[in-house]
Amino acid sequence: MRTVVITGGTRGIGGGLARQLLDRGDRVVAIGSGAAGGASLRAEAARRGTADRLAFHRVDLGSVARTVALAEELRARYEVVDALVLCAGRYRTGRAETVEGFEQTFALYVLNRFLLPELLREPLARADRPVILNLCGTGGRAGRINWDDLQLRHRYGGFRATMQGARANDLLGVSFAARHAGSGIRYVLYNPLFVDTGLSEPFRQPTRALVRVLARLFAARVDQAVPPLLDLLADPPDRPLSAFRRSTPVDLGRREFDAETAVRLHRVLTGLLPGPAV
């Protein structure tokens, strides 16, 4: 029985993936920020007869301290983690900071996805075919790293923050794969593109209504987005790093995956963390 840890694992793509993995006989460790989402997932697992293989942890993954504490708990509880799926994310139209002083999109979409793979590397490396599956905006050309203003204290925009996170996640994959090439852990960057996961909620009217209409017309359903992820978890690519836009491979020779820039980002993120988090 495999053990799969899923951040953002109660709703949207993460929740759909958790349900399917439970139905297939895996153990799922779902991480979410809301009690209601966890309760709903537990209730559904009970109805399906899979509750004995579900663990839910309510954690604010925008917090570095709570992410570190979660990783410590998971390392103590699970000797082997077969897969880590990074789904947690939240679009924010306005700028806000965490209690630790980080811009919230940066904290959740960048720092958290930098920390968890590093902190769970040992139990992952003990698995037969370990994989990190990072659902992000890979394969796009929009966005850039704002090296002089990573926290976007000036000229914040929700799209700008999200696209900075997408470019950062490309580099996180490059950095992890290069530094841990001998671990056997496969790192997969995966862009599901437009999926109807409630993207309209952060917006005010009339934008919210417009996004809802666009989602109904053009977005894939969650149940359509999950099967390719199940395939990647069951049979990850043999390469240390791979990237996909849905089923289409992304060329890792593009400038978004520059190795020297990945080293720079790793150095900067390590310097932002309080103490030896990684």
Rank of each mutant, 00 (worst) to 15 (best):
A168E: 01
Y187E: 03
Y156F: 15
L199P: 04
D251Q: 06
V268Q: 02
L133I: 11
R121N: 03
T207F: 10
S40V: 14
V174E: 04
T270A: 13
P274R: 01
L273M: 01
G253V: 07
G143S: 11
R212N: 04
L241E: 03
Y78C: 07
A71E: 08
Y187C: 08
L217Q: 11
R42H: 12
A225E: 06
E118G: 10
F176E: 09
L241F: 05
L152D: 09
T162C: 05
T3W: 07
A107V: 01
R179E: 13
A262V: 03
T50P: 11
A43V: 05
R11L: 08
L120T: 12
A234S: 15
N146Y: 15
G89N: 09
A71I: 03
G32A: 03
R53M: 09
G275F: 01
G157V: 07
R221W: 10
L233V: 11
A178W: 04
R47K: 13
T248Q: 14
L74R: 11
A107C: 07
R141M: 04
L70D: 06
P130E: 01
S242K: 07
P202D: 05
A88M: 08
L229I: 07
T248E: 13
R212Q: 15
T270E: 14
G34V: 12
P276G: 07
A43D: 15
D251C: 01
T207V: 15
P206A: 04
L116N: 07
A262D: 06
L233I: 08
G158V: 04
E201Q: 13
G101T: 10
R53T: 05
L252P: 14
V68L: 10
P117I: 08
D82R: 04
P202N: 03
R144P: 01
G9N: 10
A166H: 04
T98P: 12
R47E: 14
S247F: 08
A18V: 09
A142E: 15
P227V: 12
A259V: 06
E122A: 15
R11M: 04
L111Y: 01
